[in-house]
Amino acid sequence: MSLLELDDVHTYYGESHILQGLDLSVEEGEIVALVGRNGVGKTTTLRTALGLTPPRRGTVRFKGEDVTGVEPHAIADRGMGWVPEDRRVFAHLTVAENLRVAAHAAADPDARLDEAYELFPALERFADKEAGDLSGGQQQMLAIARGMLGDNDLLLVDEPSEGLAPQIVSDVVEALRAASADTTMVLVEQNFRLAMDLADRFYLVDHGVVVEEGDTAGVTSDDERIRRYLTA
C-alpha cells in the first residue's frame, strides 16, 4: 500500500484547469521529487494532496484512506506536513511560538520543541526572536522544523532552495536529509540537480500531468526526455 496516491486528479483555480488527470504514488521511506517548469502544477499537486485546493475529479488516498474533500486540518492530523513555498512562518510570533503551534497535538510539546532544537541548533538561539526577523535561511529551517513537529509520516516540501544563497542551500539540504531519516518526503524543486541529488524517484510534470517518472540515479537535465520538458 502506497503512503500517498493521487489517481486521475483534476484540480482547478476558478476556471483554470491546472491538474489534468495527474497520477502519482509515494511509498513509505522514499523521497520523491516533482520537477518541471514553472506553472505546470507542481505546487498545486502538493496543495491538492493536503486538501488546500481540493480536486474536482479524481481521488487522493493517504495511508490507504480516501481523503478527497477532507478538510486540510484533518488530513494534517493524519500525519501530512507541509513546508510551503516562501516559508510562510508566522512573522510576528517568536520562533518558539511558531514551533508550539505545530506541536499543538503533542502530549509533551516542550519535549517536541527540544527535539526540533536538537535537529536545528540555530533555532534554539533565536527561540525568543520574532520569526520575521530571521534571515531567509533561518526561516527555511524554521519552516522545515515546523513541518516535522506534527509527528508527520509524510512531509510535502515546496521549493526549499528558492531565494537562498548557495551556502545556505547546502545547510537546508542537510536539514532535509536529516528530516528524511524518519519521514517520507515529496519535494518540489526548481533546481533539477539538487532535486535529483536528494530524491530517490522523480515525477516530471508538464501541463498538469506526469510525463516522465523513474529513479533519479544517473538522471541529468541533459537527458533528451527531460530536457525538452524543462526548457521553455
Binding site: L50, H73, P84, R88, F90, H92, N98, R100, H104, A105
Partner: peptide
Amino acid sequence: GLYIRAGSEDTEMVQALGIDV
C-alpha cells in the same frame, strides 16, 4: 490565543498544521 495570533497572519498555514481553524 496562540492559534488566533497565528491565524491572524496566515489562516491557511494554521490549518495545514492540523488546527481546526
